[in-house]
């Protein structure tokens, strides 16, 4: 498997984060500035240029036991600093399926 770092030159169009799935249970997690993982998007480390993104992704990839499949994802940062997912896929990963789950219907 090709490392995400080797796949292509990293370009970001705006504020971004690194997200992955936690290894032991698979839940969605975000890389924090404290070099850890959090299930809370508000704790994600924000990167704003390619070099920062590459560095954050590199340390995330290195933490292979903590989480798997890390990648860079766009976010929107409000004036109040609130972080929101930058696309529908990430919105769904953050808030869950957009449908009722059968066991809850």
């Amino acid at each position: 498997m090709t490392s995400p770092l080797e796949q292509k030159k990293i370009k970001i169009a705006g504020p971004s984060i690194v997200t992955a799935n936690r290894t032991w249970d698979g839940i969605v997690v975000y890389r924090t500035a404290a070099k850890s993982w959090s299930a809370d998007l508000s704790e994600a480390a924000i990167v704003r240029n390619s070099d920062e993104a590459k560095a954050l992704l590199a340390e995330s990839v290195a933490d292979d036991v903590g989480a798997i499949g890390p990648y860079i994802a766009p976010v929107q940062v409000g004036a109040d600093g609130k972080i929101e997912p930058g696309n529908l896929r990430e919105q769904i990963r953050r808030t869950g399926v957009t449908i009722g789950q059968p066991a809850q219907v």
Binding site: N21, G26, I27, V28, D64, I68, G69, R89, R93
Partner: peptide, 20 residues
């Protein structure tokens, strides 16, 4: 994970958006 991926796939385990 690189070593494990093929093993989990051989047992029907994928990684999806929210979980395995």
């Amino acid at each position: 994970e690189d070593e494990f991926k093929i093993l989990r796939l051989q047992n029907g385990v994928y990684l999806q958006l929210h979980a395995y």
